[in-house]
Structures are given as structure tokens and as C-alpha cells.
Design a protein around this nucleic acid. Structure first.
Length: 570
RNA sequence: CGGGGUGUAGCGCAGUUUGGUAGCGCACUUGGUUUGGGACCAAGGGGCCGGGAGUUCGAAUCUCUUCACCCCGACCA
């Protein structure tokens, strides 16, 4: 490739609206261009990187007997009605109509298509287990795309679906995919990947893992125990909360005036008590209904909304308390709460056995002190709806856990029979009985992986691609390309590299050396070979690795061997 | 969907307060001089000042409206 012909120009200045490194540098290097919010064009270099990542993924998926298929981007409503997801998924699923008024969706994931394809083709247990996968465009109408390629609306994803007769078989294969994922992320240059237990969300199923790259940029919160193997997404993470200290002097239920103190911090300040000695109320509306859910939780803790959704088995939306006339915002308490039947009350397990607590009096300006949960509230059922905080104790080993951020790059799910049941996929087992196969599904975001590698490896000079996914392996950099001898040698080398299978981009421009060096670094090409008039007589070249300060002068005749050695070493 | 911000040449920005013929740097074109860390000189090309409506003799600038993008939040395989 000649750089003079490459479509995608490089700039010295950062784009004004890019805040994260990978976003800014991919644009500065001319690799990507925004078309609309969360929708991007990829130039040749970015496309090459994506294809190399896909090749590695393909390699590993084929290695665990995956069969590459292709499912459609556009699917009919009816197919998504079969699984029930046409109506259960929110606005993230793009719905539209064709010219005949036929309702269609844009694929955001392909369980339906995979089961549709498999159910008529797999009829016997003898065909199981098997896995089909594709690498293809998805569209999700994200409420807010952000961070360049980190969170987008249109993206390429590898999605795989496996079918099994038994749970054992699924678990066995699940582990194989797990191991393949570890190899994939290592091969594309992501070393700091960890697998965490996660919430299955709308996918259904029980066991699932997310592959997280630990980064400040990450949108997911992960609970990690530094002392044992416990790692979990905040959504499902559990930890031992500090126990209730019940050495209270004031054990009489007393209504006290608290004035404008409504938030827990204010109440704590007003009454001079520890936040652990308070019970706060958090209210949500239940989606698509008039009902509300009121959560009572110890004052030092927060509600984990993902856990809450599971407890009440409903979607929730935040509530504006002014809307409600029944409850007194800021003074909500579990005693004498007017319940008109439209409210679900959930008590967090942190309240179990607590005494001497401060609660809202359900009366503007008043709280109640000295409340014993067991004596005064007579709660029969506690749920776990609290969010883990740094410093809580690990449920496995009891040491302090920490909360870190991560970028989710891949995930794996044990789906069970959710889709094979709803979509009527059956196979005959060895007794001739029709059963629903058990499914697993497995995803990796290609563009997000690309952006994450960029994010991790880039430095102040620019991008820095690992050799295995670099758009080109060698940046061939002649100085004084207008010098006929330099040009002759450069073209010789270019041909020799190409013939040796070394992917090379040639900087054929007549610009100053500094300009070429800067561009080679901005683009992040791993190996730079410099042809220079002053090295011509000694029949030598200069070779420099991206990210390494020193360069080396080597004999012209050794250059191919040296480059191949570097490739083999990596 | 809430809160905040920004829209002027491919990119980065000034000009808007106080209305009076559209500017700067980078990039691009041509010629010349340069060439080991983003060269210099000269001459050029490129704008419906996001869109619409208004006020005015006159609008990038004032008013109303709309759209897009970015950030925070909500939301989310």
C-alpha cells in the first residue's frame, strides 16, 4: 500500500469532541469517521485490523468445532414474536415496516434466527452437540452511544449458539468456549481481561460470564476480591454487609421532629446518629403499570436495581416523588405506611435484626427513633437488594472486596431451553422421546475489542498495534524519496517484503523525515524500516520497533530475516 | 427521556457582547528552495456561518423555532 493513495487523512490536532484516547487517536490517524451518533465508517486500516481480529476469532471458533453461518440483519416480526422478545425488548430493538406494511426488526442478537435455522435441520440427538456462529453487523438503538467505538449503535459482533442434549454437555462446552475466549483475547493483545459472573438480563438462562477489560473508561462496575477468585458484575455481586450493632440505649419508639431533613445525610446530621442506624426508603415505579415498589434498606447502603428487578420480577423506572400523593417524600417509613394496594414493599436483608433504628414517620417533618425491626415491624420476608461497596467482605473468603470499572468485550451464557421451548425446537433422544435441546450463546464485540486494544496500547505519540492485528506490519520509510538510489532500493525492498508475506505500507511522499516518523507512530505500525541516503554506502537500513526508543542499523541483506524473526517471536 | 455544552472551509478555532462585503492556523493545488523528528518563500482553490421563520435598509451576529453532535445522568446481551 502506498500512503499517498491511502484514503483517510491524518491530523495533528485532536478532534474537538473526542474525550477518550482511542476515540481521538483513531480519528486523528484517519482510521474511522463518524457518520451519525454511534454509527461509523471504517477506512482501510481499521477494516484490516477488524478483519485480523475476526480471523483470530474464526480460528478459535473453528477450533472448537464451530460452523460459520450467516443470519440476516433484517428479520420479520413474527420470528421475534415466537420468542416473545418483539414485545419484551424496549426501544433498543429497531422496529420498522416494509412497503407492504410488514413489520420487521433489525437484528440486535440472533437467538431467534439461529433457532429458526437449527430447528428444522437438527432432529436427532446424534447431531448434538453442535455450534453455529456468525460474524456480522448488529444494530441496537442505544439510548446514548459514546466513547468512539466503545459504545455504538451499529457494530460487528461474533455471536455463537450451541445446542446440547444434556446440561452436563452444555457445561462441558461452555468451559471450552471460556478457554477459547481466553486465547482470543490473549492473541489480539488484551492481557488484562478477566471473566466475571454476570446477570443474564433479557437473554434468559442462569449462568453467564462477561469478559471484562479493566479500565477507567469502562461502564460496568465489577466487584473483585483481591484475595480469592471471587469476581462478579455489580449487578449480581454479593458481599457480606457489616452487621447491625444492637447495643442501643434508646429502644423506645419515639416520634421526633426533624424539620427539613429528608435525605439520609441530613437526617443523620440532624439527629447525630450513624447512617447504619437509619432505614431509608427508595421508590420506583413499576414499568407499564400504576404500581410502585417501595424499598427499605439500611441508610448506609444503596439499592441494586438489577437485583430488585429480579426480586419483584418486573421492570422498574425511576419515580419522581412529587407525583405521589400517598407517600410523603423524605419521610417515608415502614410503620403506618398507607398502602392502597398499589405498592409492593421490599425489605433488604440489611434490616434483619436491626434495633434502635431511625425511620421516616410518613408525616412531613418527622422521623421515628428507637425502632426494632423484629419487635416493631414484624417483617416476614427479607430480600437481597443491596449494592456491594468497596470494603465490604467477600462472601467466599471474608476479605475486603473492591469495586473497579471494566469494558465488557465478550460474554457467554448458559441459556437453557428458553428459546428451544418458546420456538418449539425438539430433537429425539435415544429413547425416541422429543426433547428441547439446551442452548448456550457466546458473543464478542469486534469493534469494541479493536477500540479497547487501541485504548490500552496507545501512548502520547499515537496508536500502537500488536503485530498480530496491526493493519500493516512494516512502515517502509524512505528519506529523500526523490533520490533515485533511495527510490530504487525502497521499491526493491517493498517487492521483497511483499513476496515474503510481510504486509507493508510505503511512505512514498516527498515530505520531511519528521513528518513520516510522526505518521508511522500515529498509525501505530509495529516495525519501521528507514531507507536513507547516508546509509546507502554502507548497504544498511535502520529498523525501529514502535514503542521502543532505540533503533538498530542492520545489513540490507539481513532485513527480511530480521523481520520474519520478529514475527515468529511474537 | 432529564441536565449541560457546541454547531463558521476537510481538521482545530477567532469573529457574535456593540448588526455594516467571511477570517486565522493546519491540510489541499502550483512554482521554487529544502530534507534524520511534524521545513520555508510566493501564488492559489475551497464557506447558504447546521436548517427554517422573523426583526432590519442591511443578520454569522438580534428574536423565535427546529435539527445534529458531544458530555453527565436515566437506559442497556
Amino acid at each position: 500500500m502506498l500512503i499517498s493513495k491511502l484514503v483517510g487523512s491524518r491530523t495533528k490536532e485532536n478532534p474537538a469532541d473526542a474525550v477518550i484516547k482511542s476515540h481521538a487517536l483513531l480519528i486523528r490517524a484517519g482510521f474511522i469517521k463518524s457518520v451519525a451518533g454511534g454509527i461509523w465508517s471504517f477506512g482501510m486500516p481499521a477494516k484490516k485490523i477488524a478483519m485480523k481480529i475476526e480471523k483470530i476469532i474464526r480460528d478459535e471458533m473453528d477450533g472448537i468445532d464451530g460452523q460459520e453461518c450467516s443470519f440476516p440483519v433484517v428479520m420479520p416480526k413474527e420470528l421475534w414474536d415466537e420468542s416473545g422478545r418483539y414485545s419484551s425488548i424496549g426501544d433498543e430493538l429497531v422496529r420498522f415496516e416494509d412497503r407492504n406494511g410488514h413489520k420487521l426488526v433489525l437484528g440486535m442478537t440472533h437467538e431467534e434466527a439461529a433457532v429458526h435455522f437449527a430447528r428444522d435441520n437438527i432432529t436427532s440427538y446424534q447431531q448434538l452437540p453442535c455450534m453455529i456462529y456468525q460474524i456480522q453487523t448488529k444494530f441496537r438503538d442505544e439510548a446514548r452511544s459514546r466513547g468512539g467505538l466503545i459504545r455504538v449503535r451499529e457494530f460487528t459482533m461474533k455471536d455463537a449458539y450451541s445446542f446440547h442434549l444434556t446440561q452436563d454437555c452444555l457445561e462441558n462446552y461452555y468451559q471450552k468456549v471460556f478457554d477459547a475466549y481466553v486465547r482470543i483475547f490473549k492473541r489480539i493483545g488484551l492481557k488484562k481481561i478477566i471473566a466475571v459472573k454476570s446477570d443474564s438480563g433479557m437473554m434468559g438462562g442462569k449462568i453467564s460470564h462477561e469478559f471484562m477489560f479493566l479500565s477507567e473508561m469502562g461502564e460496568d462496575k465489577i466487584v473483585i476480591c483481591p484475595h480469592c477468585e471471587y469476581k462478579a458484575n455489580m449487578e449480581i455481586a454479593d458481599a457480606i454487609i457489616s452487621p447491625n450493632e444492637n447495643n442501643d440505649k434508646d429502644t423506645n419508639v419515639t416520634e421526633v421532629f426533624t424539620g427539613d431533613a429528608k435525605e439520609i445525610v441530613d437526617v443523620v446530621k440532624f439527629l447525630g446518629v450513624d447512617d447504619k442506624k437509619t432505614i431509608k426508603a427508595v421508590v420506583y415505579n413499576i414499568k407499564s403499570s400504576n404500581k410502585q415498589v417501595i424499598c427499605f434498606i439500611r441508610g448506609d447502603l444503596e439499592v441494586n436495581e438489577a437485583k430488585l428487578k429480579k426480586v419483584i420480577k418486573s421492570e422498574i423506572v425511576p419515580v419522581s416523588l412529587a407525583e405521589s400523593s400517598e407517600i410523603v417524600a423524605g419521610n417515608i417509613g415502614p410503620m403506618n405506611l398507607k398502602n392502597n394496594g398499589d405498592q409492593i414493599i421490599v425489605y433488604d436483608k440489611s434490616l434483619d435484626g436491626a434495633t434502635g433504628m431511625v425511620i421516616g414517620a410518613n408525616k412531613a417533618g418527622y422521623h421515628i427513633t428507637g425502632v426494632s425491626v423484629a419487635r416493631d415491624l414484624k417483617i416476614s420476608d427479607f430480600s437481597d437488594i443491596s449494592k456491594v461497596k468497596s470494603g465490604m467482605r467477600c462472601i467466599v473468603c471474608g476479605e475486603q472486596v473492591s469495586v473497579v470499572n471494566g469494558i465488557e468485550i465478550g460474554n457467554i451464557f448458559q441459556l437453557g431451553t428458553k428459546y428451544t421451548t418458546s420456538m418449539s425446537m425438539r430433537v429425539l433422544n435415544n429413547n425416541g422421546v422429543a426433547v428441547n435441546p439446551i442452548m448456550g450463546c457466546y458473543g464478542i464485540g469486534v469493534g469494541r475489542a479493536l477500540a479497547t486494544v487501541a485504548e490500552e496500547t496507545a501512548d502520547d505519540k499515537g496508536l500502537n498495534w500488536p503485530l498480530e492485528i496491526a493493519p500493516w506490519e512494516v512502515y517502509l520509510c524512505p528519506i529523500r524519496y526523490d533520490n533515485p538510489d533511495v527510490k530504487k532500493l525502497t521499491l526493491e525492498l517493498y517487492n521483497e517484503f511483499t513476496n515474503a508475506g510481510i504486509e507493508t505500507i510505503l511512505d512514498d511522499r516527498n515530505v520531511t523525515p519528521g513528518c513520516k516518523f510522526a505518521d508511522s507512530e500515529l498509525m501505530g505500525i509495529p516495525i519501521r524500516v528507514v531507507v536513507s541516503p547516508k546509509l546507502l554506502n554502507s548497504n544498511t537500513l535502520e529498523i525501529k520497533l514502535r514503542g521502543v526508543d532505540e533503533s538498530k542499523i542492520v545489513l540490507r541483506n539481513d532485513i527480511i530475516k530480521i523481520i520474519l524473526d520478529i514475527k515468529n517471536y511474537v
